[in-house]
Design a protein around this nucleic acid. Structure first.
Lengths: 239, 239
DNA sequence: CGTCAATGGACTGTACGTAGACCAATAAAC
DNA sequence: GTTTATTGGTCTACGTACAGTCCATTGACG
């Protein structure tokens, strides 16, 4: 009997209660650099509507993030909830624990990421990009290249997300964001080496160049190489 | 200001209430052929646990599907909930309405499907398949090829799902199942032509052969061609 | 023919999430 | 300085979903 499809289709309907899911989403926005330090989140009423969550639940999620040191709220007109300039650094979960938690899930996540991101790079290069999209991509590339060590991971995520964005497919963008979050905890456990960063920056430039010049095959190939490097690091680190 | 990533990350936390989501999942299992006519669903207690839903909610969902003519329940030991041999045929939503509903979403779904399924084909061909996996793939291929007109769509879905299954990545399998469901309504609106079916069967055989012989590039290329045919049909039909 | 394990069916109390209205504070605009 | 629109903060009533328990039915097996 084949159980693989059963597992896929009878998986949990939702990952947690609305509160937990909302916290996760806001963290996604912050950790993937969709909203940067100092940026303001949308007003509670609007954000609650977009997330299809009651304002009470959203506020509880924001409260949790406030206590964790991610955001701060100010009342009154021109007030709002702002992302802190100094983000709390993740608690450095022991690698052993991560490895145990994700032992099976790691290959799953890496496979999905490989499919999504190489596909996104190819799809992006197959499109006619607007000037705004081109600028967005270039800006994300430059900001990442100029990033300090503490900001690198977030701006790296932001760049990869930008590649998905310029495919014009919101679903694909969401999927890339989700799988990136799944791998984030692991990536945080790996020490950042200057040499690796330099290498990444070069690869990023190649990927973006291929997308901007409209070379799908090259974009896919470059992304593939880039990802396999990270994947190798992860596998080695957790071995 | 770039809003693409905002849309992706601030999208609704959940598509509906647990009841609706559960109905959708069970329909997914039936319509994608994961459970065929005459098959028994897992016992309510077990299924509720796997879906992370209360038994009450699951029962309400099953009740809805019973009224819609998809399943039937029998009490007692060796009882259970069984998929009807004769499935109700979908209500043939007018194409105009579908086109209006999915106007924007169509390209989004097609892009995602292309990325996921070509990626799945390549990933599947890159793996060492167990004998069970090989047989499963072949069986799905054969059953689809032998299918009658009324069964064709379901067994076609089942085959595509099988390709994702043999990548060994549950997340990828789920993603393929989800995007297939999004396109299902549209596919149901397109008339099935014998000639198209024959062509599809040939392409399916090529895809499966490439996977079984471990030729990732060929698998990707074959799947790509296969999908672009369907995509062209959909775009033309809704134009 | 009786037993019994497994399954669907039904009920109760609790907790959580929601919708909506209202209050409080803030800073730009006048 | 006053006004005012916008935003976060608070409260209440309601509905839904959940966990747990018990009941009803069935058919294989001894």
């Amino acid at each position: 009997m084949v159980v693989q499809a059963d597992e896929a289709v009878f998986r949990p309907v939702r990952a947690g209660n609305p509160f937990e899911e909302t916290v996760e989403r806001l963290l996604q926005a912050i950790k993937l650099g969709v909203v940067g330090p100092g940026d303001r989140l949308p007003p509670e009423r609007e954000l609650a509507a977009r997330l299809s969550v009651s304002r009470v639940t959203l506020r509880e999620a924001i409260h949790a993030l406030t206590e964790a040191g991610y955001v701060e709220s100010r009342r009154g007109r021109y007030g709002g909830t702002f992302v802190n300039a100094q983000l709390p650094k993740p608690p450095r979960t022991p690698a052993k624990r991560i490895a145990r938690d994700l032992a099976d899930g790691l290959e799953d996540a890496l496979t999905l990421r490989n499919v999504l991101e190489t596909g996104a790079a190819e799809a992006a290069a197959s499109r006619e990009l607007t000037t705004a999209e081109q600028n967005h991509l270039r800006r994300c590339l430059d900001e990442n290249a100029a990033a300090s060590l503490t900001d690198y991971r977030r701006l790296d995520s932001r760049l990869h997300l930008a590649v998905a964005e310029v495919t014009g497919s919101p679903s694909l963008t969401s999927a890339v964001a989700d799988v990136r979050m799944r791998l984030n905890e692991l990536l945080d456990a790996i020490p950042l080496l200057e040499r690796n960063i330099a290498h990444s920056n070069v690869q990023h430039a190649v990927i973006v160049a291929a997308i901007l010049t409209g070379d799908p095959a090259a974009a896919r190939r470059a992304m593939q190489e880039h990802l396999s490097g990270t994947a190798a690091l992860l596998r080695a680190f957790l071995a």
